[in-house]
Design a protein around this nucleic acid. Structure first.
Lengths: 113, 113
DNA sequence: GCCTAATATAAGCCGCTCTTAATACTATGT
DNA sequence: ACATAGTATTAAGAGCGGCTTATATTAGGC
């Protein structure tokens, strides 16, 4: 209902799991429900509420086919998170460089000993 | 204290803000506190507790200098999130391709009309 | 129209997280 | 040793998010 940040949505393990289940393409709500209910031991309305959160925050698109609802990932908010992470990429890139340097030094030291 | 997912840590806006403040390098707890207290209207202990969560979950490293604590980002958990996002990158890459195709078609159509 | 299947919404309870206030810890200066 | 600055911890209260049960909606078959 209220406008929440993308990270708040992904803070819940059930919602992350649902997105993982959708990575290879759309699935019906009932299919998602069966899996998630089994894995997390929650009820059908419980799953449905998580689907609502994903919907309301733009993480999924829904297609109706008869009484069934087919959910699919909408990548927009994920891309937003990706953008947020962007500024930190330099940090681990830099650390990998340091590791690389360290490894090279290690090899050189072994050679000289 | 308990092991939480990286996304749970980033679910809080104060903690995200602290990480943003640390992106350009380390800062003292007090400096972070002053900014965050002002922006979010919370108390010093409030900030300190968020710093604890970041510490306990490996998002920050701390260096003591006298009574001061200098915090810096540790990129490990952020990289973990980046890895999680990896599988969805194809989705928006694909969408950008579609957009690109659409733009090309648009140009072609305008030319033929 | 009625029955069933598929999914969503409503209302209430419970637990957890965030907050504050009070307090403790640690280091430095005098 | 004492005072003060900087930071962390503890305890307790408030609010919110998520779960459940019960109910409503929507669509299709007979």
């Amino acid at each position: 209902m209220c406008a929440v940040h993308a990270f708040d949505v992904l803070g819940d393990p059930v919602r992350r799991r649902i997105l993982e289940l959708l990575v290879d393409g759309e699935r019906a709500a009932g299919e998602l429900g069966a899996i998630v209910q089994d894995e997390f031991g929650i009820s059908q309305p419980g799953v449905s509420q998580h689907l609502k959160v994903l919907r309301d925050n733009g993480f999924t698109r829904v297609r109706a086919e008869g009484a069934r609802r087919f959910y699919a990932v909408d990548p927009d908010p994920l891309q937003e998170i990706d953008t947020w992470l962007e500024r930190y990429r330099a940090l681990w890139a830099q650390r990998l460089d340091a590791l690389d340097t360290e490894l090279r030094r290690g090899r050189r030291d072994r050679r000289t000993t």
